[in-house]
């Protein structure tokens, strides 16, 4: 068993055919174009395979396939390919950049598309604009604490369970695969992860109600769809963020809605001196 664990992975080269979505620009028609990719080392990553294909295209003076990427280690959330109908490719809990060619067989036809949703318009080829996520964050995804105003970090203990759960939610890399995978193009998983991360911590309580109301309202305004609890999002999520956070956000949102409706208003109108 130990020996088999060490057996070095097969390096027999494979050849595949790519069917890639090519689209010159936003609002332009796109189509699938086939590219052969031959003699690939199965240990190369999917993006490295695209690099190789692109080098070949560039050599011929053809426009390389545009695809988003940066860290190439599954943390920045830039890469965003739908590979054979699944955001981020065949494996669970990994990003596109962590997909390796050993997951495919010699002779496979691999269909590659951008993340799609109305709020994620395609910019070019396999790149879509996910700026909507930033807008949701700007609406409330923060704790207001200006530099220099913080108490000692240990002044507010955080129960380990809460800290762990908050970290589970905070791991979201903002890739948008949840939206891409959801039949409704709903951003619930992303927003829930954000809301839960801050809402689980004592530091996040002061703005908790306001945060969830503002972020959900921004999410709706941006034209994301409505969740029907299908959990495709968490299944496609490279960080396997749990849809339990969606339930948590639903509760928070409804609670905040009612609290806001019945909370007495301060009658003082006096401003600061």
């Amino acid at each position: 068993m130990v020996a088999s664990a060490h057996a070095s992975p097969s390096t027999a080269p494979i050849s595949i055919t790519l069917r890639v979505w090519r689209q010159a620009g936003p609002n332009q028609p796109g189509k699938f174009v086939e590219y052969p990719a031959k003699d690939l080392n199965p240990n190369m990553s999917f993006l490295e395979m695209l690099d190789v294909v692109n080098d070949e295209l560039e050599r011929k003076g053809e426009d390389p396939i545009a695809f988003a990427h940066d860290c190439r280690e599954g943390i920045c959330g830039t890469c965003s390919l739908v590979i054979n109908g699944k955001p981020h490719g065949p494996h669970r809990g990994v990003a596109s950049c962590q997909t390796y060619m050993r997951s495919f067989a010699d002779g496979d036809v691999i269909v590659v598309e951008p993340f799609r949703a109305k709020p994620f318009p395609v910019i070019k080829d396999l790149i879509s604009d996910r700026g909507a996520f930033d807008q949701i964050q700007q609406a409330g995804g923060f704790i207001t604490a200006r530099a220099g105003s913080a108490p000692d970090a240990n002044a507010i203990p955080v129960p380990k369970d809460n800290a762990d759960l908050a970290m589970d939610a905070a791991q979201c890399i903002g890739c948008g695969a949840c939206v891409a995978a959801c039949k409704n193009a709903s951003a619930m998983l992303f927003v829930a992860a954000k809301v839960s991360h801050l809402g689980l911590l004592p530091q996040g309580q002061a703005e908790r109600d306001q945060r969830v109301l503002a972020m959900v309202s921004k999410m709706d305004e941006l034209g994301f769809g409505n969740c029907t609890n299908q959990y495709e999002c968490s299944a496609a999520c490279p960080k396997l963020i749990s849809h339990d956070f969606i339930a948590r956000m639903n509760r928070d949102y409804i609670g905040a809605t009612f609290r806001q409706a019945f909370r007495p208003k301060s009658l003082s109108t006096a401003g600061g001196a």
Binding site: F32, E113, K183
Partner: peptide, 13 residues
């Protein structure tokens, strides 16, 4: 709303 949010272009697969 959800149908419209899915966007104009459908996935190929």
């Amino acid at each position: 709303e959800s149908k419209s949010a899915r966007g104009p272009e459908k996935y190929g697969v």
